[in-house]
């Protein structure tokens, strides 16, 4: 049976993992390769690397990082953050990334999704969508780290992205991100029903029960989180045992 996936997300800057990761027994928590291997051993199903570097050297650092991670890691990983062109995507895939996620560049020019899917196949093209709720419009898509409202309706945009060839939607609720109050069940459920490709839920995870809810009530295919894993608040293995006890198929 196909399992629900648990995905730790690692922020990287200048080739180093950031966000004060606390892991006992890990000598260098800033080393993306060491951290990735640690998560793989604990039972993570996939990893996401989000590049937050804001310099011109970005591309070279990211490609080198992807190569180092791919050399060591025997589970799939996705790379995202500021990826804008077919050439960017090609460099990352050729160096061992399994999937590439695009966000602002797809909103600026949606045809990019069609071009990438035709060139590399839908299976490796993830569209990351950042949604925020406000009255009266409802869930809308934001860019530039959640500061700029595009005016796009979240469900419509995700449907368009899937229709254009995205193989997966990574949906982050900016309204829930950092709250630890749980995933945004309403918009995650609405997007999951609207598209026929897998949906990764992100933003707001604070407890193991939050994962149960997003799988059972919002039909997410995967749950992504950062700090609760990095700070050791929830272990991947205990989370998966909890989910299995709740009747959710997981790889243990």
């Amino acid at each position: 049976m196909l399992t629900k996936r648990i995905i730790p997300c690692l922020d990287v800057k200048d080739g180093r993992t950031v966000k004060g990761v606390r892991f006992e027994g890990l000598r260098d928590a800033g080393d993306p390769v060491a951290l990735a291997s640690r998560y793989a051993r604990e039972g993570a199903d996939e990893l996401v690397f989000l590049d937050i570097t804001a310099t011109n050297q970005k591309r070279a650092t990211l490609v080198a990082l992807v190569r180092d991670v791919a050399r060591e890691l025997d589970i799939p990983f996705t790379v995202g953050g500021g990826i804008g062109t077919v050439a960017d995507v090609e460099a990352l895939l050729l160096n061992g990334a399994d999937k590439v996620s695009i966000n602002s560049a797809a909103l600026a020019r949606p045809e990019l999704i069609d071009e990438l899917a035709a060139r590399f196949g839908s299976q490796c093209i993830v569209v990351a969508a950042d949604a925020r709720y406000h009255e009266p419009e409802g869930w809308q898509i934001y860019t530039r780290a959640g500061t700029h409202n595009t005016g796009f309706d979240a469900v419509q945009w995700c449907r368009e992205a899937a229709d254009r060839g995205a193989g997966e939607i990574l949906l982050t609720s900016m309204s829930n991100d950092g709250t630890k109050d749980g995933f945004a069940l309403d918009i995650t459920g609405a997007v999951s029903r609207a598209v026929s490709v897998p949906v990764v839920a992100s933003g707001g995870a604070g407890s193991m029960q939050d994962f149960t809810r997003v799988f059972q009530q919002a039909h997410a295919d995967a749950g992504l989180a950062a700090s609760i894993f990095h700070f050791g608040e929830i272990g991947i293995r205990e989370l998966k045992e909890h989910l299995r006890a709740d009747g959710i198929p997981v790889r243990l």
């Binding site: 049976m1 897998p198 949906v199 039909h219 790889r251």
Partner: peptide
């Protein structure tokens, strides 16, 4: 064929 609980691509860990 995509169906409610069966997304396409078939993506992830299966037995």
């Amino acid at each position: 064929s995509a169906a409610a609980e069966y997304k396409v691509p078939h993506m992830g860990w299966n037995t």
